[in-house]
Simulated assay, not measured.
Amino acid sequence: MTVRKIEPGDEADWQRLWKAYLDYYEKDFPQAHADRLFHSLMKGEPYFVFVAEEGGAVIGFVHGLPHPSTWSETGYCYLEDLYVDVDARGSGAGRALINAVYEEAKRRGLSRVYWHTDKGNETARKLYDKVATLSDFVHYRMD
Rank of each mutant, 00 (worst) to 15 (best):
residue 83 Y to E: 06
residue 120 G to Y: 14
residue 13 D to I: 03
residue 61 F to V: 10
residue 10 D to S: 02
residue 31 Q to N: 10
residue 138 V to G: 06
residue 54 E to V: 04
residue 121 N to D: 15
residue 54 E to H: 12
residue 18 W to T: 01
residue 30 P to V: 11
residue 41 L to A: 02
residue 120 G to T: 15
residue 110 L to G: 05
residue 77 C to D: 04
residue 114 Y to K: 01
residue 49 V to W: 00
residue 12 A to Q: 07
residue 135 S to N: 08
residue 46 P to T: 05
residue 123 T to K: 06
residue 70 T to Y: 05
residue 142 M to E: 07
residue 34 A to C: 13
residue 122 E to W: 14
residue 121 N to Q: 01
residue 5 K to L: 13
residue 27 K to M: 12
residue 23 D to I: 08
residue 27 K to N: 05
residue 44 G to V: 08
residue 25 Y to Q: 01
residue 30 P to F: 14
residue 127 L to Q: 07
residue 49 V to A: 03
residue 61 F to I: 13
residue 49 V to M: 06
residue 33 H to M: 15
residue 21 Y to C: 03
residue 82 L to H: 04
residue 26 E to A: 14
residue 99 N to K: 14
residue 88 A to E: 11
residue 114 Y to G: 00
residue 92 G to A: 07
residue 105 A to H: 00
residue 106 K to N: 06
residue 24 Y to H: 09
residue 72 S to E: 07
residue 105 A to M: 00
residue 19 K to F: 10
residue 14 W to P: 00
residue 89 R to K: 06
residue 96 A to H: 01
residue 40 S to Q: 14
residue 16 R to N: 09
residue 126 K to Q: 11
residue 17 L to K: 00
residue 77 C to T: 15
residue 95 R to M: 03
residue 73 E to I: 10
residue 130 K to H: 09
residue 46 P to R: 09
residue 81 D to W: 09
residue 39 H to L: 13
residue 112 R to C: 09
residue 18 W to C: 09
residue 126 K to Y: 07
residue 132 A to H: 12
residue 89 R to V: 05
residue 42 M to E: 09
residue 28 D to I: 11
residue 77 C to M: 07
residue 109 G to H: 00
residue 92 G to I: 13
residue 32 A to Y: 02
residue 21 Y to V: 12
residue 8 P to M: 05
residue 117 T to L: 10
residue 27 K to L: 15
residue 90 G to E: 08
residue 24 Y to F: 15
residue 66 P to M: 01
residue 54 E to R: 09
residue 18 W to A: 07
residue 16 R to P: 05
residue 39 H to Q: 15
residue 123 T to G: 14
residue 105 A to W: 03
residue 55 G to M: 04
residue 90 G to A: 04
residue 44 G to R: 04
residue 89 R to W: 13
residue 136 D to N: 14
residue 15 Q to D: 09
residue 24 Y to M: 10
residue 16 R to H: 05
residue 39 H to D: 11
residue 97 L to R: 02
residue 22 L to A: 05
residue 1 M to K: 00
residue 9 G to R: 08
residue 66 P to C: 06
residue 94 G to R: 00
residue 82 L to V: 05
residue 133 T to Q: 14
residue 126 K to C: 09
residue 13 D to Y: 13
residue 24 Y to V: 10
residue 138 V to R: 12
residue 11 E to M: 10
residue 98 I to D: 00
residue 1 M to A: 08
residue 24 Y to C: 07
residue 26 E to V: 14
residue 29 F to N: 04
residue 122 E to A: 13
residue 78 Y to L: 15
residue 33 H to L: 13
residue 89 R to F: 14
residue 75 G to H: 03
residue 127 L to T: 07
residue 48 F to P: 01
residue 4 R to A: 06
residue 13 D to S: 15
residue 12 A to G: 02
residue 45 E to S: 08
residue 106 K to T: 11
residue 116 H to F: 11
residue 7 E to G: 04
residue 41 L to V: 05
residue 97 L to A: 04
residue 37 L to M: 11
residue 28 D to E: 15
residue 141 R to D: 12
residue 37 L to D: 02
residue 63 H to A: 01
residue 60 G to H: 02
residue 95 R to S: 09
residue 83 Y to K: 04
residue 47 Y to F: 15
residue 123 T to Q: 13
residue 58 V to E: 00
residue 74 T to G: 07
residue 82 L to C: 03
residue 117 T to F: 05
residue 13 D to L: 02
